[in-house]
Structure formats: C-alpha cells, structure tokens
Design a protein around this nucleic acid. Structure first.
Lengths: 342, 342
DNA sequence: AGAAATGGCGCAATCGTTTGCACAAAATAG
DNA sequence: CTATTTTGTGCAAACGATTGCGCCATTTCT
C-alpha cells in the first residue's frame, strides 16, 4: 500500500528541482540538461520505480492522450478488426482507446458521446456514425477532432475513411450479370447508415447501367445488419411480385439470413437463387455454400482513420482529406451460379 | 474554439465560491446546501454547458474511474462477448474501459500492463492471463485491484471468474463415450494458459474414469488457440501411433482446424472421426457438420468479473471469492457419431 | 579584459477539482 | 436573553505534472 513515486520524490533524492526532473524524463526537453543530471535522474527514477502520472500530466497539458471509439458492437468482427487497425497506430503514438458500444441506438450514441467528452478524450473515432449528424455531435465537433470510419456522416465536413461501397456492389452485380442473372433483388442495409444508402443507390445504378429491370418490389430494406433482418427481407422479397434469380445483400449477415430464408421455403442456394454479401467476415468461407462477397480492408480502415485522427489532434490546422476511399476486391465462392433455365 | 466551462466560471456567474459549486453539483454533498443555491448553480451549469473535468477530478480524488482490460485479441468473439458483459456493469457505475490486446505475447502483456498502470486505472480486468504470474503483475498487484476472467493465474491470490472447464471436457468425453467411442485423442490448448492445462487434465481424468487407454501419443498440445495449430496437432495425431476414433479439442477453433486436417487426409467428420470443441463461438452452428461443443457464458464471465472488480475497487477491505466457476452446457450437433465398426 | 551571449537549472504559477477547516449566521437549549 | 449547537458557505491547500521566466555561471566576442 506504498504511495506511488512522484517527481517530487525523485527531486528530493537527486537533489535537483522537480522541474529539472520533469525535463530530464522527457526526451524532448532532455537536451537542455547536462547528461550527468539526466543520467542521475533517470537511474533514480528507474530505481525508485517511478511511473509518470498521466492524469496530472493531462491536467496541465490539457491532453489526455485518450481517444474515444464509438462502435455499434464490438462483438461484430468487422468492427473488432477496425479496432485492431486503429490500435496499431494509436498505441505507438501513446494514445489509449476507450471503446463504447452504441448498439446503433441514437440515444445511447448521444449519451456515450457525452461520456467520451467528459473523459476529456483528445479525439473521437466514430465507427458508429449514422447518416444525419446528431445535435450533440455538432456541439462537440468544434472542440474535439472527429473522424468517422467505415461509415460517414452526410452533409458535414467530418473526415471519413470508408470502403468503396459503390464499387463493391458494382462488382457483385456485374458478377451476377456475367453469370446470366437478369432479375436481381437487393436486401438493403439500414437507410440510417451511409453504407446502407450508398450500397442501395450503387445497386440501382449498377442494375440500371446493365439495363436490368428494377421495380420497387426488388428491394427490401433491413432495419439492422443482422441475420434475422436478412431473413425477414428475403421472405418479403419471396412473397413479393418481383420474380428474381439472385439477391445482392448489403452485408454478409443479411446474406446468411437470406440463405436461411430460402432454405425454409425449400429453395437452395445457388441452384435456385444466387446470393452475394459484403465484408467477407471471418469463417464465412467455412459456411456452405461459400458466400460470394466483397472483401474490404477492415484493418486498413482502422489504421488510416486513426492516422488521420492523430494528424488532426496534433496539428489542428492541418488540412485533411474529407473522404478517403479504400479499394475493395471481389471474392467468388459457391453462392453464385447460373440461373435455372426456365 | 471557446474554452470549456469550469467550476470557476459558474462560481463567478452565480456569485458563490467554487467549493460551493462543486458541492452543489455532487448529489452526495448537495444535501449540505440550501436548495436555493443548488438550484441556482445547477441551472447555471446547464445553461453554460458545463461538463465536469474527469481529469482534474481524478487528480484530486486519485480515482480515474477508468479500468483496464487486457485481452488476447478482441477479434476473437469469445473475448468480445466478455467485453460486452463487463461493459454492461462498468458503464452504469461510471467506469470506462481501456482495452488492450496482448496477442498472448508475454512481452507485450508486460508492456501493456505498465501502460494501464501509468494511465492510473482503478482496476484491471485481466482476460489474457497466463498461468504463471509475471513480475510486473506481482509488482502492480499491491496497488491496483485485479480480477482475471476466463482464465486464472495459478498459485496466486488473484480472484478469477472462469467457466467450468473440467465439467465441459467431461461432458464431451462422456458424450463421445456414450456414442461408443473408446479411443479418444485430445488436442490440448497451450499449457501456458490455465484453460489449456485445466482442460487437458480434465481430459485425462475423464478418460481415466471411463477406463479408456491414454498413451502419450493421444494428446497433442497447440501453442495457440487457432485453426492452424488445430490442423498441425491433428496431423501430428494422425501420424502418430495412437489409433483414435474421436478427437476432443480444447477449443472450437482448434476443432475447426482439426476437421480441416481430417479432410485433407481424405477422412470425413463424423463418419471417420468424431470431433468436439469448446466455447460455442458464433456461426459455429452454420459450419458443417455442426460442431458438438461446450457452451460457456461469455457474457456472464464478463459481467461477474466486472462486478467483482468493482467491489474490490470501491471497498478494498471486502472479502471476495477467490474463484467463481460458471456452469457450462453441452451442445450436440453433427460432428459426433458412432465410431465406424471395424 | 570587459561586455555580451549562451547554457543549465530553480522558482513559482498553473491546470480544474475536491475537501478539511474556519467562521459567520441562524437555530436551539438552558 | 445569553450560551451552545447546528447549518450553510467561503478560504485555501492539496493532487502531480508542465513550462515561462529569471538568475547565475560559464563561454564567446570585440
């Protein structure tokens, strides 16, 4: 239960002023001191088991060296990978992340946003952004640098690092078309997210460019990115007036739900209906029939967005790119085949 | 770029002392003030957009209200679920978690442990514990409350919340035995983890109690809990002198690797060899042939360990249970069948 | 050799809160 | 109606680090 060692203790021990100790311990200010003193202080610090107090430091410097990360749900491996990517750059720079899960609940999101601000985070990496900027965000925006990752906030100047959603969907639609599909349905992601909207409009554009029919009954919108919503939407499509041979889903989990819904109707994938996903989440390759999907750079999104945020935190005047778009690749597996001859 | 509002600002505005403002804003000390003053201060605070500065507060109270969480890898859904469980109790209590990933690297673990201490965390939830207590941990132990979750540190008094590893393995072995298996091999987890050791010794005990043969060649030890190690160990077993009809694996990912290794040898599961796992990770039900496994309370482990840690942080004198063991259940799927008649 | 420039270090203020103590006014007791 | 307790506030000292400023002792310049 011994008290932690402070600068003052080291100062007493080495018979110099605490300011000198402080300077000796900081590599940046160390140069203005005699190397003899630096040595003496450093060895004493090591011997006494000194650990700098980030809290006190933060009070004086007004920098907590803590960043906040807003996630929908860490349980979702897509976001976990982003966290690792961000960590890989935060940690070497001395930043520690506080992670909070919003469950895509706007109220929770606002509350947690405030929690982060109270904590005095130096910046916020928002991986749970919804399309419209919320009030508390607008308020906080002036003070704390924010970067959104994976998703973006529309009509705002908040920088974002995202995947090429449009290109990903285009790849999937093109691939389906190449396989002979002409009547393709879409299970869209929540319109509250930029990814949901982007992918849905990219779907419309891609099918349009290929001259495919696209009635309203060809699109069903999920309210969450999960299997049960994928199931629900697929059932909606199956019960609708649009006869399709393939479904392009806005994300892998929706696709898994859709495939399940097909099975319950006695249909199989890909024989009866082809299905595509988005993200290429882990273990997907092991699930039959092997989902054809879009591989995104989850880790890269985390890494780049963290680098961007660090730049904004350390140099407030720096001009940063408004949007950074990372390339995606197409992963072809067994869930896509030629449509049944009629 | 307006400066954040401080107690001093509110004091000036309401013409009371900062100490009074401080007291008025704290529900616990609020009672010693006139309600008139409390009202005046609170409304002013709200109007001016005051947000308490946790950093300054932490410096004075010597409590950061931050807890550290050491994880092997947040990408692993088992640990992500534990995080959510812990969060569900930390957040309502006003604690924010800083999460770091050790990748099960002892050096990284020590370094990150120090990072957490420098950050002035009020407690540490160690989900990445290795069996032997490391030096830095022993050092820090005196100052900061620690609880291990999922795993435990042997020969130490650090409280832990774990799953019933022994019972889980017993259930699997019993089930295999019930199906007719008499020659069962084991892919053990790393002996550096308590889970690896516990499950291996439980395997020995369970097979022993059933009177089964258990030569050394029946057990292969993985150095990490991942698919490639599962593959490697399964190949080792297949090339060994022990002819088995089933493999009980220390974890699901090892089991997936093992099944893959079987496939490469032209063997199928469960027809040729039955396989069992441990943890019941998400999506496992979708992967053929459906892994028979042990379901553990990941969320519960997180929740209980967090509750324990909070108790230790708020009441240092409290006596807490050394070990809390959560029950497990058996999940039977398609990966286990009767052994081939010889 | 005297003046000026440089380098190394100490002094003290500061960051925003909390909290023990003092002290006045009000309430209660004797 | 004084003496004592209570009650509500203010004062000021922490908490542990950073940093502008100033001072003294060298070194360098003229």
């Amino acid at each position: 239960m011994n008290k932690p060692v402070t600068l003052k203790d080291i100062a007493r021990e080495t018979e110099v002023d605490v300011s000198t100790v402080s300077r000796a311990l900081d590599p940046r200010t160390r140069t203005m001191l005699t190397s003899e003193v630096v040595d003496r202080v450093c060895t004493a610090a090591r011997r006494m088991g000194y650990r700098k107090n980030h809290i006190a430091r933060g009070l004086r410097t007004r920098r907590s060296m803590i960043v906040g990360m807003l996630l929908p749900d860490i349980t979702n491996t897509v976001f976990a990978a982003i966290v690792r990517g961000a960590e890989s750059v935060f940690e070497p720079h001395g930043y520690a992340p506080i992670i909070v899960n919003t469950d895509d609940d706007p109220r929770r999101e606002d509350a947690l946003f405030n929690v982060l601000l109270e904590r005095g985070v130096d910046g916020i990496l928002d991986v749970a952004a919804r399309r419209e900027n919320s009030r508390s965000k607008a308020a906080g925006y002036a003070d704390v640098p924010i970067v959104t990752a994976n998703r973006e906030i529309e009509k705002s100047s908040i920088p974002s690092v995202v995947n090429d959603d449009a290109e990903g969907i285009r790849l999937m639609v093109q691939h389906l078309h190449d396989c002979g599909h002409r009547r393709i349905a879409h299970v869209a992601g929540p319109a509250t997210t930029s990814t949901g909207r982007k992918r849905a409009s990219a779907f419309r554009r891609a099918t349009g460019e290929l001259g495919l029919a696209l009635p309203g009954a060809a699109v069903a919108e999920a309210s969450r990115y999960d299997e049960s919503e994928g199931r629900r939407c697929a059932e909606l499509l199956l019960g609708g007036r649009f006869a399709f041979t393939a479904i392009a889903c806005a994300n892998d989990r929706l696709a898994l739900g859709a495939i399940d819904a097909l099975g319950r109707r006695g249909l199989t994938c890909p024989e009866d209906v082809s299905v595509t996903g988005f993200n290429d989440i882990p273990f997907l390759n092991l699930v039959p029939p092997g989902l054809t999907t879009v591989r995104v750079q989850q880790f890269g999104v985390g890494r780049l967005s963290a680098e961007l945020l660090i730049k904004m935190m350390t140099d407030p005047g720096a001009t940063v790119p408004r949007t950074t778009i990372l390339p995606v690749t197409s992963i072809e597996r067994g869930s896509v085949a030629a449509p049944k001859p009629i």
